[in-house]
Simulated scan of single mutants.
Amino acid sequence: MPPGDRIVDGGRVLAGHARAGVAALRTFDRDSGGACSVTGVEVFGQDDAWVVDAEFTADPQTVTVISADGVEGPGEVVGWLSFSVPGDAPGESHRLQVTEQNGDYFVSFGDAGAQAGTHPFRFLNVPAADPDGHTTIDFNAAWLPASAFSDAYLCPLPSAVNVLDVAVPAGEKRVVRR
């Protein structure tokens, strides 16, 4: 089945897929035990302290991206976002490496909250920086990757440089299952 083609049979979908020139077939079944076990998404409460100013520094390069299934491939990053978070000491900051997506930034990140039950990684969309390099990161908008819901999705894992050494108690936390 060519990539992008789909066959729908009731609650099941067969979808053609290709990665690095290798064709594959994915099966989605909304009536499967895994799909039926999802009861919701646990979310942290809105906290305006986790809307932080950031500074963008351009640093385009090709990096190795590892997908949730362990497959490695090249990816293009455009630079870094530098910022401080609640609880940081004066002058302390963190960095995340970002890609460009539809004129804004996209980031796959992990944080120390994974040790306390937050999903191992989450995604963020961040507005592109203004001409002076300023933007705002709203961690309240962090969302779970599709691979949190099903192994059929091949989401990009955060690189080691995108795993923060602080917990980020903002945004979507984890999938809730019965």
Score class of each variant (00 low, 15 high):
159 S>W: 14
11 G>D: 15
143 W>L: 11
62 T>P: 04
86 P>D: 10
34 G>D: 01
69 D>T: 10
175 V>I: 06
140 N>W: 12
1 M>S: 14
94 H>Q: 00
45 G>M: 03
77 V>Q: 00
177 R>K: 06
69 D>H: 12
160 A>S: 12
78 V>Q: 01
104 D>V: 00
138 D>M: 10
86 P>L: 11
33 G>C: 06
158 P>F: 06
140 N>L: 12
120 P>L: 02
31 D>C: 06
41 V>Q: 08
142 A>M: 04
123 F>K: 11
94 H>W: 00
176 V>Y: 04
78 V>R: 01
137 I>P: 08
124 L>E: 01
155 C>S: 13
86 P>G: 08
87 G>I: 04
26 R>L: 13
110 G>F: 05
12 R>C: 05
103 G>W: 04
86 P>M: 08
70 G>M: 05
133 G>H: 01
98 V>K: 06
127 P>G: 02
51 V>E: 11
4 G>C: 06
84 S>A: 02
81 L>F: 00
60 P>R: 10
136 T>N: 07
74 P>D: 14
23 A>M: 13
134 H>C: 09
132 D>R: 13
5 D>K: 15
169 P>M: 01
152 A>T: 12
10 G>Q: 05
34 G>W: 05
71 V>E: 11
57 T>K: 15
46 Q>W: 10
137 I>C: 00
69 D>I: 12
17 H>N: 10
75 G>D: 05
170 A>R: 03
145 P>K: 09
126 V>D: 03
17 H>L: 15
175 V>M: 07
176 V>Q: 07
137 I>V: 03
164 L>F: 02
43 V>Y: 03
72 E>T: 02
64 T>F: 15
135 T>E: 08
158 P>V: 04
67 S>V: 09
9 D>N: 08
68 A>W: 08
